[in-house]
Design a binder for these strands. Structure first.
Lengths: 346, 346
DNA sequence: CAGCAGTATGACATCGATGTCTGCCGTCCC
DNA sequence: GGGACGGCAGACATCGATGTCATACTGCTG
């Protein structure tokens, strides 16, 4: 099998160790520095010499050692780190995609890591990234407190927070308009004539959830509605629990006539619970999702890819030398009526 | 703003340049090497000395320079590269997630890059990754030909192909059982009594699509069915076109009674076309997807996360020194009946 | 023909860590 | 008391590239 391929560059192709520039130079019969100049298209290299060097490099299958180059050039890589939840969650993968596209335009590469929604792991990932000398660090923080993250910001590595704000306004952030989105959802349902509106929310200690919950409650109060109060469910953290919770809600007497789920996971659970239901309540979910149009799910949509893009943009500006105060970009939300949120109360 | 934080380590905290081990050593009043020993918990460091060094490191906010360490230790990083399509496609993000989880267990980190389904870009990404000295390279190839990729495999950097086989069996690969999956879908529909079965497929030049198409056709022939022939549609590459194609199919006379879509994008398009249809044809789609249960979509499912995991496992074995011949792991498929594929012909 | 500019090249230091080797102590043991 | 040994520490080379500076050679000018 290996015999079918000619062993190019008889030096040490088999060793698994890549040839160095020194070896290329030796083969070409020039000095190390001249070889370097030739391969980097620097001036002052005789045409013939350049050709010899390039041939030697080809023969050996030489590839520049980026690690060595980076060390010499200033010990900072072309990598940008992203720490987020699992990529199977479409929210995170959309964000990652937006980041990746933006970074590429500036010759930067994305390194991803999953914090498993665990603050301790997250901390050690930050350490590892900084040690690896990433140019910037984008974080969708897992825990409540992340003071420790911001300190680094002042030491030369820009931090950008996504989805959840830093404890103090010490770093750039890209946030969703949670307050506006939740209010819009609440008002949409109120306008549809609903009063007994159930709220199914994720962990209330997480800032975006907190904001959505509070905003929903505020909207209810502003409308003088109190009938939602028995139907508030928070700290529902996975799809399974969401499905159960919705089932339980539907067995209450009187039954809620509408549901508001505060993220895509919970919406999925609710849709499962409602499947096959003859007379389902109205449903509005936070976060848009694939096929929501087919299902006819009314959602509070926002552009997660744009979130990533904006975060990468902020990071890139810092990398390029921007020194101004911390900035916050807010991603707007829109209610997209598709049917489920327009069902009347019964 | 910066004044609010005490300027720790008065050396050069402001400069944005991180302190080096030499500076830590100087502050602690020891030699470079002793500082290195202390921070790496090597033996033969007096307790008091160790403490002084660690204090100095803290004061300066020292963080080891991973680039320098890697260079010294052997010029190979702890990074593994993944080149695939856009992460907003749940297939790719599931694969990435599986890879990331597996790599983490071995202390490796994932670097992702999007080839935009462009062979030229892909090539340059491979170059960039190799230059960056990744430990292994996982690729979901875009184009038809990728000979050039395999050559590198013999030079010490393990390659693993996902979803699409290497041109020659020169590298490890993780593939889906496309033949089995497509046959199962075809037989499922035939068993339901369908004869006029439409096939909506993506670019036929891509190996997995080719396999699904061929296998479908073979199953039809084996069943002695010829009525599907007017309903074959290939090279349908995006959701929009899929939707249009399905609409067109449904206007044919006689109408096909069933559809088989050969990937998740096409299935999405088909579902859009079928939305609100009073008497929809049966539908089976290749690739499972979120909420398929809610929609009631019958699919040929496979475990994409496992695909990523297996690929990462193969890569890790190579990294750990395995030298055997190229291996191929096949991911099995299952038809999951959820309703759409069980609608009878009308 | 001296002087000078410009080109082509190489020697050497350097980036920030780690590996090797050497040297100095003090202690223990015969 | 002397040799062996273990603990501690430092000097120096090294990983693979690039930056700086010095040098040799060419050709041209006055």
């Amino acid at each position: 099998m290996s015999a079918s391929r000619p062993a190019e560059g008889s030096f040490d192709a088999a060793a698994g160790r890549r040839p160095t520039l020194t070896q290329v130079a030796a083969l070409a019969g020039v000095s190390l520095k001249t070889a370097s100049r030739a391969l980097n298209d620097e001036p002052n290299v005789a045409e013939a010499t350049g050709r010899r060097v390039r041939e030697a490099a080809d023969r050996l299958g030489y590839r520049l050692n980026g690690i060595a180059r980076e060390l010499r050039r200033g010990a900072t890589s072309a990598l940008v780190g992203l720490i987020s939840g699992d990529l199977t969650n479409p929210f995170y993968s959309a964000v990652a995609s937006g980041i990746e596209r933006e970074l590429r335009q500036h010759g930067l590469q994305l390194v991803t890591a999953n914090n498993d929604e665990d603050a301790e792991l997250e901390q050690s990932l930050v350490d590892a990234f900084l040690q690896r000398r990433v140019r910037a660090l984008l974080v969708v923080p897992s825990g409540e407190h992340h003071d420790y993250l911001a300190i680094e910001g002042n030491r030369g590595v820009p931090f950008v927070f996504l989805d959840r704000p830093p404890d103090e306004a010490t770093a750039d952030a890209v946030l969703i308009d949670n307050v506006g989105g939740a209010r819009a959802a609440a008002e949409h349902l109120l306008a549809g004539g609903h009063r007994r509106i159930a709220l199914v929310a994720d962990l209330a200690r997480m800032a975006p959830q907190r904001a959505r919950i509070d905003s929903f409650v505020a909207a209810m109060k502003a409308a003088g509605n109190e009938e939602w109060e028995p139907y508030l469910r928070t700290d529902v953290h996975d799809v399974r629990r969401a499905e159960e919770t919705v089932r339980e809600l539907l067995e209450l007497e009187p039954r809620p006539t509408a549901l508001f789920t505060t993220n895509n996971r919970l919406t999925t659970g609710a849709l499962r619970a409602l499947r096959g239901h003859t007379d389902p309540p109205a449903l509005v979910g936070f976060d848009d999702f694939d096929l929501a149009d087919v299902i006819g799910a009314t959602v509070v949509a926002h552009d997660s890819v744009a979130m990533g893009r904006e975060a990468a943009r902020l990071a890139h500006e810092r990398i390029s030398g921007f020194r101004g105060p911390a900035r916050t970009v807010t991603i707007s939300t829109t209610v997209i009526p598709r049917g489920s949120g327009e069902r009347p109360p019964r």
